[in-house]
């Protein structure tokens, strides 16, 4: 647990000192403003949750993709991965702590989007506060697990890095974070459901509707399974990567 806390505080300090790593948070108010204007949210209240939730999920995903996704590779490039692996602290705990710090920082996006909505004249009514809280927590957990997988994959597959920047809008589109996936062709739906953002978007939106969130158990199970799958894959891959680079002697190979 000490290693986890050390990773958490290290990453918090790094984020604080390098505001460039938090540039995603600067985009949230603008994305929110754009979506609120596009959906004419001040006159069509039913669409306001879509416009507020989408930029939050976009920020979570982008931070997971870039800031958290780059952690191991950046350490490797900076030459700090070797001493980190050489310490008695388990690398997985350190990395998990760091990823949790990034995910926690991403949650600022929710407050940003909410404030922009208020300034725009949109007053959201939370009909199911518990659903909202549970939705934010499970989404954060699944984001952290997915970020761990991305971080490991980017170390394992050097060829995948050029595509890193491409995993944003295709995922937003497929997961229906603004426009529900029902609008997309039927053959896309199974792909959408593999992306955790689709479950998160549905879950969070249901907190703002007066109807009972009947899908809540299924949404939570789906998010839990996707989080577990991400974490399991990340753990297995991390072990393999470390074994391989130790044998090849390329741990510090930038």
């Amino acid at each position: 647990m000490r290693a986890f806390r050390a990773g958490l505080s290290l990453q918090a300090a790094l984020l604080w000192r390098s505001p460039g790593n938090l540039h995603v948070l600067a985009t949230v108010p603008l994305y929110t403003l754009i979506l609120l204007a596009m959906t004419d949210a001040s006159h069509q209240a039913g669409l306001a949750p879509n416009a507020i939730i989408a930029p939050t999920l976009m920020a979570l995903w982008t931070m997971a993709l870039f800031t958290a996704g780059d952690l191991i590779d950046r350490d490797r490039h900076d030459g700090t991965l070797e001493p980190t692996v050489a310490t008695p602290a388990p690398l997985a705990q350190v990395i998990t702590g760091r990823i949790c710090a990034v995910t926690a920082a991403s949650l600022i996006a929710f407050a940003e989007a909410w404030v922009v909505g208020l300034c725009f004249g949109v007053h959201l009514s939370v009909h199911h506060p518990l659903t909202l809280v549970v939705g934010i927590l499970t989404t954060s957990l699944t984001t952290a697990c997915t970020a761990a997988l991305i971080a490991t994959l980017l170390v394992l597959t050097r060829g995948g890095r050029p595509y890193q920047n491409s995993l944003s809008f295709p995922f937003y589109l497929l997961s229906g974070i603004v426009v529900p996936i029902e609008v997309l062709p039927h053959w896309v739906h199974p792909i959408s459901r593999i992306i955790y953002l689709s479950w998160s978007a549905d879950l969070l939106r249901s907190a703002f509707r007066p109807e009972e969130p009947r899908q809540l158990p299924m949404q939570l199970i789906a998010l839990g399974l996707l989080a577990a799958a991400g974490l399991a894959c990340a753990s297995v891959l991390m072990r393999r990567v470390l074994d391989r680079v130790r044998i090849l002697g390329t741990l510090g190979h930038a």
Partner: peptide
């Protein structure tokens, strides 16, 4: 870019962005 990363990475991302925002029109 290589032609592959531009075509299957960058271009796919940008085209998805265009579709993403264009489809918002269907909500209204």
């Amino acid at each position: 870019y290589t032609w592959k990363t531009w075509l299957f990475g960058w271009l796919v991302r940008m085209l998805s962005q265009v579709v993403f925002f264009t489809l918002v029109g269907r909500l209204t």
